[in-house]
Every structure is written in structure tokens, then in C-alpha cells.
Design a protein around this nucleic acid. Structure first.
Lengths: 141, 141
DNA sequence: TGTCACATTAGATATAATCTAAAAACGTAT
DNA sequence: ATACGTTTTTAGATTATATCTAATGTGACA
């Protein structure tokens, strides 16, 4: 995704392409792991000190609302953010909390629409275990 | 699940059946929705003021570690806890953050074990949308 | 260039959860 | 029953994460 495409996808959703906002999403698009807000702030702010903590959080919120970024909550840890365009599932490491992508595949919907009055968006599949960094540290695998 | 069964399942995992610990898991077992730690603390503490905040959190941590309770992280909100014995999936309301159970059904594993060095436990399916309380408030459904 | 809505900022604040060190409760051996 | 070591609990401080506030800046466009 080049600069023009990023600009267009922001403006197509009513978001101005400010330097700060651009920096946040461009940084996210470069990642293959999914950083926390604090990590994003640190990285973006190091390159361009104009981007404050509040702006980082504001922009992440806006980008999530606009559907350009996915937020992944992790128990007892900071949320992770993910700007990957392609559909995918997620893997969360029990030990370090890192979130990684898993290849996407179709998941059957619930049989009876026991959902009743609810409006359901899409379902996510979350795998759990130990990532390649953490697995070796465990004695018995 | 009666008191004896609770006691046995605690002690079977090396956890003493203290009044506080018992109160936490017994309260959770009664719920059909999944309360936050703060809600659990409030409810348990109201009945028995001996149970402090730290104890509630400690016990929730221990119960999760022992596999008797599931923790569900929700973006931007407090985690929810779930002591249901039966397998199930989860539904999270985008608006109020409430977590509800969805009927369980088998989900296919990823085709290629692209997991590589990772050790995978089990996968969870999370549905999103608006719960029956929140859905009506939305104009266009 | 003036205007106005959108964005950004630093720092304060809120919320969620954990830590600390001391005291209490429990199980066991005596 | 009593003493002892371990587990558990406690109140309050502390950390971690995220949001809020009110002032300031920015850019598109008339």
C-alpha cells in the first residue's frame, strides 16, 4: 500500500490524512506482528516527535472505527493493533501476549440463529498457545 | 454443581476451599452473563465483607490458571469471567461490552499446521454485534 | 486572508489490575 | 490441643493502560 493509497483510504472514510495519522497507519502496515498502542506511540514519536500519546490513541480509535485497523484485546495486557488488509485469524501467546496472524479460512456460522435480536458482524477465531519464541523455554513442551 | 463438587474440584487442583474462594466460584457458577472482576468483587463482598478486592483478583487468577474459570478480554473494557463447565463460544456486544454464551460447535483446525513451533491449546470463536438490549437503540438496525 | 470544523497537545485524570508486607487461617505432626 | 510451616487474605499503595480536558494548531475553501 503506497502513500497515495493510504491517503485515499483515509479520506474515503472522512479522515484527514494528517502527518500523525499517516504515520500511525503506515507504521502499522509495515508490521507483521501486532504492536501495542504504547509501542506504536514510541515508534512513531521517535521518528516524528510531533505525534503525542493522545494523538496516537485518538488515531487508533478513529482508525478502528473506520474499519481500517483491528483491535485485539489480550487478557491482562495492552490491546494489540492490526492493519492487515487480508482476512485472517489470530494466535495469542499465553506467555508473552504477542498476537500473530493465522491463515484465514471460512468458519461455519452457528446452526440455529440463536442470536435472536442481535446483529452479528463477523466472527473471529483465536488460537492460543506459546509462540515460537516462548515455546522452547517450556521444559515439557 | 453443589458445594461438595465445588470443594472437590478446587482441592483436586491444589486450591484450598476457603470461604472467599468458594464465594467467588459459586457466584460465577450462578451467572448466565459473564461479570467483570469489579462486579464479582462487589457482589461477593456485599454478602461477605471478608472478601477483599485483592483476594477477588487473586482468586480469579488462580481459578483461571486452574482451568476452572475462563477469562474473556474485551477491547477497552474490563475482562469478563466465565465459570461455565460446558464448552461454548462467545458473543461480545460492541456497545455495552457484555459477553454472552453462544452454543458450542466444532470448528475446523487450520489446514496446514502453519503453527510451526507453537503449541496450540484450543481455539475460541468470538461473535460480535449488538446484544438484545443494545440492538433496539440503533436506528437502522 | 478569514473562517470553521477537524486535529493535536501536555498533562491531569480515570480505570483496571497488581504488588507489598504484615497478619490470619489452615493442615499436619506432635 | 499446640506449634509450625504453608497458603491465603488484607488494606492501601502502586503500576499499567487508556481517556479526558481545554487550549492551540492546521488546512480546506470561500
Amino acid at each position: 500500500m503506497d502513500a497515495g493509497a493510504i491517503r485515499r483510504s483515509l479520506e474515503g472514510r472522512g479522515l484527514r490524512c494528517t502527518p500523525q495519522r499517516y504515520a500511525v497507519i503506515a507504521f502499522l502496515l509495515k508490521q507483521n506482528k501486532h504492536p501495542t498502542a504504547a509501542e506504536i506511540f514510541e515508534a512513531v514519536n521517535r521518528v516524528d516527535p510531533r505525534c503525542s500519546r493522545a494523538t496516537t490513541y485518538n488515531n487508533l480509535r478513529d482508525l478502528v472505527q473506520a474499519g481500517l485497523v483491528r483491535e485485539v484485546a489480550v487478557e491482562g495486557r495492552a490491546a494489540r493493533f492490526d492493519a492487515t488488509g487480508m482476512r485472517h485469524h489470530h494466535f495469542i501467546c499465553d506467555r508473552c501476549g504477542n498476537v500473530e496472524d493465522m491463515e484465514w479460512y471460512e468458519v461455519p456460522q452457528p446452526a440455529s440463529n440463536s442470536l435472536g435480536k442481535r446483529i452479528v458482524r463477523e466472527c473471529e477465531l483465536i488460537f492460543r498457545g506459546l509462540c515460537s519464541k516462548c515455546a522452547p523455554r517450556h521444559a515439557s513442551g
